[in-house]
């Protein structure tokens, strides 16, 4: 065990960093906010932590915290700027935001080390501490998936108009999503920079956007568990695929494409469906459909004045 742990330390560390990164995209996505600003925040966090460590010898957590604060402020300002955008347009704008940051890093002179980046960010950050941070984050996010907060996040994603009609301040929630995303992304970036003792503009490019998105979609976008599955798979897959040698990148692409097409709810969704089906087989839900009284057809005996053209009864939503 301990031998295995030592041999795979870098992968283990990457798994947790990737988890935080994936969560930084997933959390806004749970509110229907398609933002990649978390990747930009990763860059902010990485550079801030490296700069604080190298120049001012700040302790690890202070350096990471500084990056988080900067990224949260940036996230909030970005949220104000892009408040009119939605869907793919929002995705584009936030990708642009992220890539602008990369160009700024390349042109940042001695502060960011230009195209080479920064080296020698040596700190006392331990793998155990990284895991602890991840655990705390996961617990908080898991709580946000339940109860009142869980319902409200669902409502903001599924039907913002309905959400405001039950008093949910959707705009505020969405801004919060940007801030949380900034904190998570910066935390991931800061930890990665300190674990690797280095950061360069190449670390924060379009490929990282692609990786984070892939992790969430393949793992499952609705829950932290999906992000965990995704980050484990995509951190370890290259290792596993060494067996197929040269073709590993091809296989990798095929796996991503296949999951996107045929497993839309992600691996987590598959697991949940299987679990639900098992439970249903063991004991059916008490009289849900049977209890529904009367006819489902509109206008039968009640003779409304017009055919109810717009709302054809479908039994579900929309």
């Amino acid at each position: 065990m301990s031998y295995w742990y030592d041999a795979h330390l870098i992968l283990i560390q990457s798994t947790f960093v990737s988890l935080l990164l994936a969560l930084s995209i997933q959390f806004p996505l749970r509110m229907g906010v398609f933002s990649f600003a978390g990747i930009g925040s990763y860059g902010i966090g990485a550079y801030a932590a490296a700069i604080m460590t190298i120049r001012y010898s700040w302790p690890a957590f202070a350096a990471i915290g500084a990056g988080m604060v900067v990224a949260m402020v940036a996230g909030y300002l970005l949220a104000l700027l892009v408040s009119r955008l939605d869907g793919l347009y929002l995705g584009m704008a936030t990708i642009a935001f992220t890539l602008i940051l990369t160009v700024v890093a390349i042109n940042g002179g001695s502060l960011t080390g230009g195209a080479q980046g920064l080296y020698g960010a040596i700190s006392t950050l331990q793998t155990g501490q990284v895991i602890l941070v991840c655990a705390v984050v996961v617990v908080l996010l898991a709580l946000s998936e339940r109860g009142r907060m869980g319902r409200r996040i669902d409502a903001v994603r599924e039907d913002p108009e309905l959400a405001v009609s039950v008093g949910i301040r959707v705009i505020r929630m969405r801004r919060m999503a940007f801030v949380v995303s900034g904190a998570l992304g910066a935390c991931a970036g800061g930890m990665n920079a300190l674990l690797r003792t280095t950061v360069s503009p190449d670390d924060v490019g379009f490929s990282l956007v692609v990786l984070a998105l892939t992790m969430i979609i393949v793992g499952g976008s609705r829950s932290w568990a999906g992000a965990l599955i995704g980050s484990v798979i995509f951190t370890w897959l290259p290792q596993v695929l060494q067996a197929v040698g040269d073709w590993q990148t091809v296989v990798y692409g095929v796996i991503v494409a296949l999951t996107a097409v045929y497993v839309p709810s992600g691996l987590l969704g598959v697991a949940q469906n299987g679990y639900r089906r098992m439970r249903r087989r063991s004991g059916p839900v008490a009289g849900a459909t049977e209890k529904a009284t009367g006819s489902e057809e509109p206008g039968g005996d009640s003779a409304p004045l017009e055919p109810l053209s717009e709302d054809v009864p479908t039994g579900g939503t929309r």
């Binding site: 008490a286 009289g287 849900a288 529904a292 489902e296």
Partner: peptide
């Protein structure tokens, strides 16, 4: 009361 743990998809339109 009887359908409290059902999901919307399982309800008749009137119930929904």
């Amino acid at each position: 009361g009887a359908v409290r743990s059902a999901r919307p998809g399982e309800l008749s339109y009137g119930m929904a």
